[in-house]
Amino acid sequence: MSISPYKPPITPLIVKESYLNMLRKGVRPDNRDLKTPRLIEIKTGVVEKAEGSALVKLGDTQVMAGVKIDVGSPFKDTPDQGVLMVHAEFVPLASPLFEPGPPDENAIELARVVDRSLREVNAVDLQSLVIRRGEKVWTVWVDLYVLDHNGNLYDASMLAAMAALLDSRLPDYEELETGEIVVKKGVKGDPLKINTRVVTVTVAKIGDYLVVDPSLEEEAISDVRLVIAFDEKGRIVGMQKTGAGGLSFDEVDRAVEVAREASVVYFKALEESLGRAGG
């Protein structure tokens, strides 16, 4: 059951008014214009025991992603594909509003949006994950760990997931005569095959204004957010309206436009993080 949030962050009206006054002039309290994301920092290989990992800082928001890869069974209807699983944990150290417990609807929604955005373009090449058709495949677990919630968990989580997947290597393994697959612990094999990179761009509606990459304060006074996923070719590969408000046709159109521009910034940050890891 989904319940109207009891603890919506309460923002004094006067603060909202001053935000709107700034937006009218085209600036935001942290000196950004409406279309620019916060500073992005991506570090890969931050957890040695994971097959791939990344820590993303988007402004003051921090999300870590870890990829674990195990031998598993394929789904019955897709015997020639590996398995991709995305989970998100909003750990209580990340925000005064998070409590311990199983993932709530926000964590489930976030994980499912990231999962779909990757899945719809086969970003992780699932066909390349078959060890023995119909019997043994690699299962790729992407676990998103929110460490500091200062707004826009979607974009930070998607960047972390993507960077960790790009950092991932399949385990090395041996096939025994009995057919059993034995993974060689700690020995890393081929890089995970990635077909395309994907990013999401979140656009929040505050009054009549659309802002890219909302901070926590901006999320608190926004009516609604639109999360739009893009692949490298600039195609739309996923979308999710989230939050209790609505949007007009024209607002959706404008949101897609500004999001597409901002996606270039995210792709560039991903590219630069790879350069560093390789060099």
Binding site: L226, I236, V237, K241, R260
Partner: peptide, 12 residues
């Protein structure tokens, strides 16, 4: 518009 989701690939 009060619900909007997209699963799949579309051009603009």
């Amino acid at each position: 518009i009060t619900l909007l989701q997209l699963n799949g690939v579309l051009s603009r």
